[in-house]
Amino acid sequence: MSHDLFSPLEIRGVRLKNRVVASPMWQYSGVDGMPTDTHAVHLGRLAEGGAGLIFQEGTTVDRKGRGTVGDLGIWDDSLVPHYARLVDLVRAGGAVPGIQLIHAGRKGRRNPPWAWREPNPPAAEDWQVLGPSPLPVMLDGYNLPIEMSLRDIQETVDAWAHAARRAQEAGYDVLEVQAAHGYLIHTFLSPLSNHRTDDYGGSPENRSRLLMEIIDGIRTVWPADKPLFVRLSCVDVDWGIDQTVELVRELRGHEVDVIDCSSGSLTGRPVFDTASAGYGYQVPYAEEVRARTGIRTMAVGHIVHAKQAQAIIEQGRADLVALGRELLYNPNWPMDAARKLGVPDPYAQAPSRIAYWLAKRDGGFEGFAPSTEGTR
């Protein structure tokens, strides 16, 4: 059975109105972990633009897991009402609210990307940079991590479960575990960054142990009718697609529903091979993981145009497409794409108070074209 970009998708007990997903995008605007009006504006406009699923930025499970001072955090019960407000905003815009949970690991205690030349924030007892082994990111400006003790690991596993419980209490419908891009879980998975000799290092089974314990802990508190996503760097230094496939086969047995297929960043670089970073450059990873494991996948990476996204879904290369910076450029991309693809009533992706006026505008005179199509 073929599907298209604007066909609904049901995962467990959650129904997405279309296959367009807003990726988690850091705003660097939190105040001691709390969201601000910046987050409300960002998530609200994405929801009203018509995406089916909106992911909140990587939200840290522990103060020690922060990447920057402005990171969001869900490490305390007192924060739940602040996130419940964001959930309500996204749902009111017509989208499903999702949250990505993260621990920055050895990429912690940093400045925002545009201030990378400035001195890093000072060390503190509640902001130690942690990793599986005391090995730094091989780029200037990163802090040397402290090797995590077994107690550190257990506390971190517990922190993920507590964070998932709070996400459930706040009302999120989808949860994603960030296990890619050189953050904590990714550094445990890779033999390049994990040189441990205990039960969390060495063999592939041991290196994946932290991820599996985190997933299992989350599933004790995350409802059975709500989906669980995992973001993976499917290809990276000393890591190939075959290793990803084996890992995903194991994750399927731990009640994971969707693999968010990215790549790279273990060594600090945003992609594994920058020479290959063209349109949809990571889509082949989503396609291969899906074909070889049978699990649903989400494609990411320079997905920009309506026909491009439509082809990914229509050809069965992925079940969802996630856009990031393109939605910063055009938050109404889903409506725009629906119109360009000839979807009946394309503005139905947005709330009726917006859809009504846009449909009326289209019928204003013969030959009308919106700014994303016109030549004037």
Rank of each mutant, 00 (worst) to 15 (best):
W114A: 12
D88G: 08
L89K: 02
S78Y: 00
G65R: 14
P113F: 06
A104Y: 04
L101A: 10
V87T: 01
G94C: 02
G67P: 03
P97T: 02
W114E: 11
I74P: 09
I74R: 07
R117V: 06
T60D: 13
F55W: 01
R110G: 13
L46N: 02
R106G: 09
Y83I: 08
I99L: 13
D62R: 07
G98T: 07
D88P: 05
G67A: 11
L46D: 05
Y83M: 12
V87F: 01
A95L: 05
P97H: 06
A92E: 03
E48P: 05
G49Y: 09
R85T: 06
N111D: 07
A115K: 15
Y83E: 07
D76K: 14
G65P: 15
E48W: 07
G93S: 00
G65K: 12
D62A: 14
G98C: 13
W114N: 04
I74C: 05
I74Q: 11
E48I: 13
P119N: 12
L46P: 06
S78P: 03
I99F: 03
G58Q: 11
T68P: 00
G70H: 09
V69G: 15
R106F: 07
G93V: 00
W114C: 11
R106W: 05
W114Q: 15
R91C: 03
V87A: 01
A51F: 08
F55V: 03
L86Y: 04
P121W: 07
R110P: 07
P81G: 13
R110W: 00
A47Y: 08
I102N: 05
R109W: 04
G58I: 03
H82G: 11
T59F: 00
R66E: 02
T68H: 01
Q56I: 00
G108E: 06
P119Q: 10
D71W: 02
L72C: 03
W75D: 12
I74L: 15
R63S: 03
V87H: 00
R85K: 14
D77L: 12
R91A: 06
G93N: 02
A47P: 15
R106I: 03
L72D: 00
H82A: 15
S78M: 14
G93H: 02
K107N: 11
L79G: 04
A84Y: 00
I54T: 11
R117A: 14
E57H: 02
A95M: 04
G49I: 01
V87K: 05
S78L: 08
G105L: 14
L86P: 02
A47N: 07
W114I: 07
A104K: 08
V87C: 00
R110A: 14
G65H: 15
N120A: 10
P119D: 10
R117F: 10
L46F: 10
T60P: 10
W75N: 14
L53Q: 09
A115S: 09
R110T: 14
V90S: 02
E48Y: 06
L53D: 02
R109P: 12
